[in-house]
Simulated scan of single mutants.
Amino acid sequence: MDAGFAARLRADGMSFEARDAELLRAVDEHRSLNAAADALGRSFSRAHARITALEAEFGPLVERQRGGVGGGGSELTDAARDLLARFERLRTAYAGTAAVEETVLDGQVTERDGEMATVETAAGTVRALAPEAAERVEVTLRADAITLHAPDDPPKTGEMSARNRFQGEAVDLVPGETIVRVGVDVGPAEPLVVLVTHDAIGALDLAVGDPVVASFKATATRATAAEGASE
């Protein structure tokens, strides 16, 4: 995709992403989940498990028909077609964004565990992938890789070790046709920039001045040696 954005729709922790849209379109084309998986070079068991997981959050997506005179097959539900349309609108909106918006935090590596490092920043402690010898680093956070949560929404099982979390306050909401650019004050001079859907804003009932938690995967967080720092 243009500008490096990864479009995704979220529902209660489940993300609908490009690979999922590709799978649904293949089901629609081949009228069979098995044939769709074959066409995409995926195993049927994994494709079936993914559809089941998506349906648990987004509702029925594929109608499976048993064999008979006309043979069995699979068809997309109206909910699946609506989900694909929403995803395409979001993807188009992201593709039209001129450049990736990022927040860069200065930090100091305080601990290492293999490729992962613990970094102290003005916004708080983060876990990130960092160069082996770097001590002073810059942590880059992509606006489309951050999820917003209500402060009283506890992390799901295992999430604390997998995600970084910043407590903050929404200081800016700029709505677009499909996405909303949210500025979150987490401590540093410049707000953390987050891109989310209108649905996400509605689910949070988020307004300027509201407390909010921004979270992002540790494994998707990159730290690079700060300019002028020795490696």
Rank of each mutant, 00 (worst) to 15 (best):
S74I: 00
R86E: 04
R136C: 01
M160C: 02
Y94Q: 11
A218R: 14
T140C: 10
S74E: 02
T92R: 08
R50A: 03
E75T: 09
G4L: 12
V194R: 00
A133G: 07
T52N: 04
G67E: 04
T118V: 10
G67V: 05
Q108F: 09
R66H: 09
D172M: 14
D185Y: 10
L90G: 11
T197S: 15
V69T: 09
Y94W: 09
T52Q: 10
E135D: 12
D38W: 03
G107A: 13
F87S: 05
V62A: 01
E135A: 08
S230P: 08
K217P: 02
G73Q: 06
A226K: 15
T77R: 07
P191C: 11
R86F: 05
A220H: 13
R165K: 07
L83Y: 03
A98C: 07
A6V: 09
A133H: 12
V137R: 11
D199H: 15
H48G: 03
S45Y: 02
A56C: 06
E22I: 00
R10L: 05
R81C: 09
E190T: 14
L192D: 01
A93W: 03
H149M: 10
A223H: 09
R50I: 06
G13V: 13
K156W: 03
V182Y: 01
R86K: 14
L148Y: 07
A39V: 01
F16D: 06
A229C: 11
M14A: 14
R89C: 07
A130W: 08
L83G: 03
E231N: 14
H30A: 01
S15A: 15
E190A: 15
A170E: 06
M14Y: 05
S161P: 03
D199L: 11
N34F: 05
L204V: 13
A128V: 15
D205I: 00
R31V: 01
P211Y: 06
D78I: 01
A95E: 15
T157M: 04
L204Q: 06
T157W: 02
I201F: 03
A134V: 11
G183L: 02
A3V: 07
D185G: 10
A214H: 05
A214N: 10
G168T: 11
A200E: 12
A79I: 04
A223T: 09
L195I: 12
N34I: 07
E120G: 11
G209R: 14
T219G: 02
N164K: 04
A170I: 05
A226G: 11
V180A: 06
R42V: 01
A223E: 13
G187F: 06
L33C: 05
A99E: 15
T147H: 08
G202C: 08
T178L: 03
